[in-house]
């Protein structure tokens, strides 16, 4: 049981008479790279908000990093990391100021902030840029930095919402090296992406269609089940049947 860092049972979110997330049940293992895919409007964002403790479910149950999704939302937030393509870092703070700020929020001591911050800057080779405004950095650097900041407090789970959108192909791969490293350290990685080659890098992938999980398995199993040569074909096969207005 301890190896499950996410467990959901019939997790549901309704907005009025619209069921955005419809009885989803799944488990994610410690250290796993879990791809959370689906068409626009399938309910991914709503589901992630619940899993991060930002939105109360209408019904169903879930345990995130050992915490109850209704009663322990503040504890959940301490035990997870989060980054998205849109907002992750303060553009008008420098690299080092961002690191200090987020590490401080997550309760790291001054000593830890110093050590971990220096290690982060060194790992990313950003020594020359540490006093630059984040807004002036290339997107690829920002995203690698945002990820490193999101795992600075060694969370049990890190949620990544389209982390590589618009990033150049070389940096996109370096980003995945960071993901693999985090996973090797035992951090569970929960990731959404529109790049279907990245779905192949996940240990397991779930596909959301119209608020439900339509499929969940390893990329190899999914391809074999849907008789497809790529995850792109699997996605197309599943998402094509969607009824919502996308």
């Amino acid at each position: 049981m301890q190896n499950k860092v996410i467990t959901t049972t019939n997790l549901t979110k309704q907005f009025g008479d619209f069921t955005a997330v419809d009885h989803i049940s799944f488990e994610v293992n410690k250290g796993e790279i879990f791809g959370f895919l689906g068409a626009n409007g399938a309910g991914k964002t709503t589901a992630i908000k619940m899993l991060c403790g930002l939105s109360n479910p209408t019904s169903g149950e879930a345990t995130i990093a050992g915490c109850d999704i209704y009663k322990e939302t503040e504890k959940i937030k301490q035990r997870i990391g989060y980054m998205s393509q849109k907002f992750s870092l303060y553009e008008d703070l420098t690299v080092i100021e961002n690191i200090r700020f987020f590490a401080g929020i997550y309760g790291l001591t001054d000593q830890e902030i110093k050590e971990k911050g220096n290690a982060l800057i060194e790992n990313l080779g950003m020594q020359d840029s540490m006093h630059k405004m984040v807004g002036s950095l290339p997107l690829g650097w920002k995203q690698k930095m945002a990820f490193s900041v999101a795992v600075l407090h060694e969370p049990q789970i890190v949620f990544l919402d389209e982390p590589t959108g618009g990033v150049d192909p070389v940096t996109r791969r370096q980003f995945w090296d960071l993901i693999y490293n985090a996973s090797d350290r035992g951090i569970t990685v929960f990731v959404t992406t529109h790049y279907m080659d990245e779905a192949e890098y996940c240990n397991r992938v779930s596909m959301m269609v119209d608020g439900r999980i339509a499929a969940l398995d390893t990329p190899d199993q999914l391809k074999s089940y849907y008789n497809a040569t790529s995850m792109d074909e699997v996605f197309f096969e599943l998402a094509r049947g969607a009824k919502r207005g996308e």
Binding site: A39, N40, G165, H194, M196, F235, F236, A239, A242, E246
Partner: peptide, 13 residues
């Protein structure tokens, strides 16, 4: 200009 950015692969097709 980037009409398909952030759009899922079915809508992109």
């Amino acid at each position: 200009d980037e009409p398909t950015t952030g759009v899922d692969s079915v809508s992109r097709k």
